[in-house]
């Protein structure tokens, strides 16, 4: 009788201590996560009027560079001709489309002329350089990932297409990101 009572006390206090330790540890783990101030979704408005055809501008959004590129008809055609099945990452990675959307050129943009991307290489986070590499899109100098004119990964170690942020056109020459 004494034995079982002791066992019960032993297991119960051990379990209580484990739960207590985990509960006490959590604040010390969670303090590392972004604070509410960092989480507050910031938005940025970009004026498209000064951007010429074939040009790209870089804007800062949420600490990351944002690429806004006005593509030439040739670049759009090149991006459209690609067979989606042949891509390393067949998903659109577009916050404005369903998660399952395929990586067709149409699903990477809202208006074909304007390509808006988060300028963070999906390999290890460097900023790729525009108008470089075999596919004329972006080349990441850190580890040699190459993206095409729709920002899709074509060659190198990066696993995913450049992400498309949530954005909307406020007018023909103004876009709001975030």
């Amino acid at each position: 009788m004494d034995g079982t009572r002791r066992d019960f006390l032993y297991v119960a206090s051990g379990a209580m201590a484990a739960v207590g330790a985990a509960a006490a540890a959590w604040p010390f783990v969670d303090q590392m996560n972004p604070s509410a101030a960092a989480l507050a979704l910031s938005t940025v408005e970009v004026d498209l009027a000064p951007v010429a055809v074939g040009q790209q501008i870089v804007v800062k959004w949420r600490g990351h560079p944002l690429f806004v590129r006005r593509r030439t008809p040739a670049e759009i055609d090149a991006a459209k001709k690609v067979d989606v099945a042949s891509l390393p990452d067949p998903l659109a990675r577009n916050a404005n489309k369903p998660d399952s959307a395929p990586a067709t050129d149409a699903d990477r943009v809202i208006k074909p002329e304007w390509l808006v991307l988060i300028g963070v290489c999906t390999h290890l986070g460097c900023t790729p350089t525009g108008f470089e590499g075999e596919y004329g899109g972006w080349l990441c100098h850190c580890h040699g990932s190459e993206y095409d004119t729709a920002g899709r990964i074509r060659k190198g170690p990066a696993p995913e297409n450049l992400a498309v942020p949530p954005y909307a056109f406020l007018s023909d020459t103004r876009v709001k990101v975030g």
Binding site: V29, M32, N33, P34, S35, A38, R62, G63, G125
Partner: peptide
């Protein structure tokens, strides 16, 4: 993100 404490370094 946990390591950064933000969306980027």
């Amino acid at each position: 993100t946990w390591l950064w404490g933000d969306f980027a370094v």
